[in-house]
Design a protein around this nucleic acid. Structure first.
Lengths: 116, 116
DNA sequence: GTAATATATGAACAGTTATTCATATATTGA
DNA sequence: TCAATATATGAATAACTGTTCATATATTAC
């Protein structure tokens, strides 16, 4: 390593990048959101909840897997604020947290040319 | 588990979810994109490249870490089509792949209230 | 209060992944 | 051709993560 042919240009970009880099905590929070949806099992839950709110039993029906695994996954999605929960009697009813979630899903699906 | 108080409604949603669930391959591809940006080290590279294209040396300068680690990370981002590379003499110059990447970053930053 | 149902959670194990180290490849200049 | 520079990559290891199993909590009906 050393210097490249675009020394001035790239060095300026690198300096600007350092100056504008979000702090470690913010980078970590953004990364956590992406991590929450980076596993197929959790991604399927989000795809499923596009159809409307559901209790855990029906989420399991929609995406497969065991109740325990789905429950763990729901917790991660909830901690990343991708979904929200409300209790309704014996059930906990889950739904997408806000419009950002759908927007991001749609953007990325467009990116990989996946029709949803 | 069994039935919940919203049996009809949730069951319909679950059935629709199964019917509209992308196939395993597409879910995997979307998940792979998210996984690529779910690690702080890789996320920082994307934040850095917002300032313009850079060669590896300057990316290392901007985000820290070793040349080898950054090179491995660049490969993952490239495979996920988040960044693109072109050779320029001895250097490989990297840049964000397309407008989707920035758009997704901005959406998620808004979501977690991180100013970028 | 007790039984039944729905959901959550802690611990452990298996599988995955990020980094490091050493080395390989590719380009340039002499 | 040889040396120097820039970047990439394979293997190994340490850290992390998803799932399973067993169990806990919360709500409802009796």
């Amino acid at each position: 390593m050393g210097t490249c042919g675009h020394e001035e240009l790239h060095h300026l970009a690198a300096e600007a990048a350092k100056a504008n880099m979000p702090n470690e905590e913010d980078v970590g929070r953004v990364a956590a959101v992406f991590k929450a949806v980076s596993e197929p099992s959790r991604l399927k839950i989000l795809f499923a909840l596009r159809q409307g709110e559901m209790c855990v039993y029906h989420i399991v029906e929609a995406v497969g897997g065991t109740q325990s695994a789905v429950s763990h996954q729901l917790r991660m999605l909830r901690e990343g604020r991708m979904i929200k929960a409300r209790r309704d009697g014996q059930n906990i009813v889950y739904s997408l947290a806000d419009e950002h979630v759908l927007a991001v899903l749609e953007l990325v699906c467009t990116h990989v040319k996946c029709k949803i």
